[in-house]
């Protein structure tokens, strides 16, 4: 596969280009080196030296059965690209991989499953989740037309538990929309605003179940420091998952949630 095809597959677009791409057969790894074109007018115009380059490395979604590692050489005075293949400066994962990780975590997948699905180190996933939980890193990613990838493989679906402010990469509930209602006797859907009210502390219920008390206290702290909607959505899903799993022991609390959601 030539670089132009790979650029199309990964969604690498101007001013960035693939400088090299190599397959490490032993590691089942595709190493993609991205930067400004070495002979391009932009590079010459900017007179970029090696000293003026920051190098970032992110794990990205797999390509053709291979793990994919992106190395970006970015001039210090240029912002990081808002592209699926790029990531935040303090994240080990690309935006696209981050979104996929969040979807699985939000659906209650264990770290072992998540790391197995994406063939990433479980410790790395755990550290990443801790940094999300403590607000040290965000999961948000704003796609722009120029950065939009050209393949399905590079276009992650959003984390869907949003009823908060609109976010470009998430399913948001318009302020004109009626809030989703709890279906007769069922736990309110993740999109229902009641979960966020509980997590912000704007709504309180009488909680006597110790597990829920401790979990909610932790989630409220994490929700308050979360950097973006996707991370907050993850907290919503975690709280709702507790209620689903503990319907027999947190009965009175869940009944209150259902009643308030009506």
């Amino acid at each position: 596969m030539n670089n132009a095809t790979l650029e199309k597959l990964l969604g690498v677009s101007w001013p960035w280009s693939i400088l090299s791409a190599e397959v490490d057969d032993a590691e089942h790894l595709l190493e993609v080196h991205i930067g400004l074109p070495r002979a391009g007018w932009l590079t010459m115009l900017r007179n970029v030296s090696r000293d003026g380059i920051r190098t970032f490395v992110w794990r990205h979604l797999g390509v053709g059965g291979l793990r994919c590692r992106i190395r970006l050489d970015c001039p210090v005075d240029m912002p990081l690209p808002e592209a699926a293949w790029a990531g935040q400066d303090d994240s080990p994962f690309s935006h696209a991989l981050t979104q996929r990780l969040l979807i699985l975590l939000g659906n209650g997948a264990s770290l072992a499953v998540v790391s197995s699905v994406f063939d990433v180190d479980p410790q790395e996933v755990w550290r990443f989740k801790r940094r999300l939980d403590t607000g040290r890193v965000g999961a948000s990613w704003t796609t722009s037309e120029s950065a939009a990838p050209h393949t399905n493989a590079a276009t992650p679906a959003p984390v869907t538990a949003n009823s908060g402010p609109s976010h470009s990469n998430t399913t948001a509930t318009s302020s004109n929309d009626a809030p989703p209602r709890a279906a007769g006797g069922e736990l309110p859907e993740a999109e229902h605003g009641i979960w966020r009210e509980l997590l912000t502390g704007h709504m309180s219920i009488d909680i006597r179940n110790l597990g829920l008390q401790l979990l909610l206290a932790r989630l409220r702290t994490q929700f308050a420091v979360a950097r973006d909607e996707d991370t907050r959505s993850l907290k919503v899903l975690e709280l709702r998952r507790y209620c689903e799993k503990n319907i027999n022991v947190a009965t009175r609390e869940i009944e209150q949630i259902k009643a308030r959601a009506q």
């Binding site: 264990s110 770290l111 755990w126 597990g211 401790l214 979990l215 503990n246 022991v249």
Partner: peptide
């Protein structure tokens, strides 16, 4: 422990 995976989810 408060940050262990699945903490609080099971007794």
């Amino acid at each position: 422990a408060p940050n262990y995976e699945d903490m609080y989810m099971k007794p």
